[in-house]
C-alpha cells in the first residue's frame, strides 16, 4: 500500500510537470501578451509593467521561475488582469465550487445509481426503456437549456427559492441539480451496463441455485462488481464537478472557479491560467487515486501496483 502511494505520488508529479509544460507553451503561443491590449499607456510604462511581472525575461527563464516560486514561496504568481495573487483567487472561489460540486455529485449518485440498477433488473421492459431514454436526454440537453428552464419553473411554482444568487444554503439546489444531471445520466448508463455484465456471469446462477432471493442477488452478489465502471468514471468526473462550470455559474450567479478559467483565457492572464490548470490537474490526480483505491476495495482481485502477496 505504501509503495503504491509513493509510486502514484511520483506519477502525479510527472503528470503535473507535463501539464505545466504544455499549458505554459500554449499560453506563450497565443498571440499577444497580458498587456498588449492596454491602450493609452506609454512604451516606458509598458516596459516597466512587463519587468514587474517578469515578462521581459527569456522564455526558458520564465519557464523555470514559475515552478521555483511555487516550491520556494508557495506563490502561484499575480493575476495580471485582477492584480491579486492567483492563490487568493483560487482560495476564495474554490469553496463555492466545492460545495456546488459535492451537492451535484451526491445528487448524481442518488439518482443515477438506482435508475441504473432498476434498468438492469427490468432489462428490455418499458421501465428500462423509459429510464434510458431519460438518461439519453440528460446527456444530450446542455446545461444552458436545463438551467433557465429550471429557473422559470422555480420562479413560478416554488415560492421562497431564489432562481439565482449565492448566499443561502438552499441557493445550491438549482445549480447542483443542473450540474449533476449529466453525471447522473452517465452514471445510470454505466451502472446499468455494469450490473448487466455481472448478472450474465456464472456466479449469479450459482447464487440463484442456492436459493438466494432476487433482491439479494442484486444487492449482495451483483452490485459490488457492477459499480466498478461507474467508480472509474466518477474519479475524473468528480474533479470536473468541484472545479466549477462557467455556464452553470453564470446562469445561477455562483461566485465559483469556473468563471476564472474563461476569463483567464480571454484576458491572456497567463499566471491565473497556469495556476488554475495546475490546481485542476492536482484535483484530477487526487480523484483518480481515490477512484483506484475504491476499486481495490470493491474488487479483491485487484492488487494495487507495489503490493505483494
Amino acid at each position: 500500500m505504501f509503495r503504491f502511494l509513493i509510486g502514484r505520488l511520483f506519477q502525479g508529479m510527472l503528470v503535473l510537470l507535463a501539464l505545466y509544460t504544455i499549458t505554459f507553451f500554449l499560453a506563450k503561443a497565443m498571440p499577444g501578451e497580458p498587456f498588449t491590449s492596454e491602450k493609452n499607456v506609454s512604451a516606458e510604462t509598458k516596459a516597466n509593467i512587463r519587468k514587474l511581472y517578469g515578462l521581459d525575461q527569456p522564455l526558458w527563464k520564465q519557464y523555470f521561475v514559475y515552478p521555483k516560486n511555487i516550491i520556494t514561496e508557495g506563490s502561484f504568481g499575480i493575476s495580471t488582469s485582477k492584480g491579486r495573487p492567483v492563490g487568493d483567487i483560487i482560495l476564495q472561489s474554490f469553496p463555492n465550487s466545492l460545495l456546488l460540486g459535492l451537492c451535484s455529485l451526491a445528487f448524481a449518485i442518488a439518482i443515477g445509481v438506482p435508475i441504473g440498477v432498476l434498468s438492469a433488473v427490468r432489462k428490455n421492459s418499458w421501465v428500462d426503456w423509459t429510464c434510458m431514454a431519460i438518461a439519453m436526454i440528460g446527456i444530450c440537453v446542455p446545461s444552458f437549456t436545463i438551467g433557465p428552464l429550471l429557473q422559470i419553473y422555480a420562479a413560478a411554482h416554488i415560492p421562497g427559492l431564489k432562481v439565482a444568487g449565492w448566499g443561502n444554503l438552499q441557493d445550491v439546489l438549482l445549480p447542483a441539480f443542473t450540474l449533476g444531471l449529466v453525471s447522473a445520466a452517465y452514471l445510470a448508463r454505466l451502472t446499468r451496463g455494469g450490473i448487466l455484465e455481472v448478472l450474465s456471469q456464472d456466479f449469479v446462477r450459482t447464487a440463484r441455485a442456492k436459493g438466494v432471493s432476487p433482491t439479494k442477488v442484486i444487492l449482495k452478489h451483483t452490485l459490488r462488481g457492477g459499480l466498478l465502471p461507474a467508480v472509474a468514471y466518477l474519479g475524473p468526473a468528480f474533479a470536473a464537478l468541484i472545479s466549477g462550470s462557467f455556464i452553470v455559474e453564470t446562469i445561477f450567479q455562483v461566485p465559483g472557479m469556473g468563471q476564472h478559467f474563461v476569463n483567464a483565457a480571454t484576458t491572456r492572464d497567463e499566471f491565473l491560467l497556469l495556476g488554475l490548470s495546475l490546481f485542476f490537474g492536482f484535483l484530477i490526480v487526487v480523484m483518480n487515486l481515490l477512484a483506484d483505491l475504491l476499486t481495490g476495495f470493491l474488487d479483491p482481485r485487484v492488487r494495487l501496483a507495489g503490493e505483494t502477496e
Partner: peptide, 18 residues
C-alpha cells in the same frame, strides 16, 4: 440450495469473486 443443490462446471467463474 436446501433440498436440491447444484455444482457447476467451471469453478473459476462460478464462485463470486467479490
Amino acid at each position: 440450495g436446501k433440498r436440491i443443490s447444484m455444482v457447476f462446471q467451471d469453478p473459476m467463474s462460478c464462485l463470486n469473486p467479490y
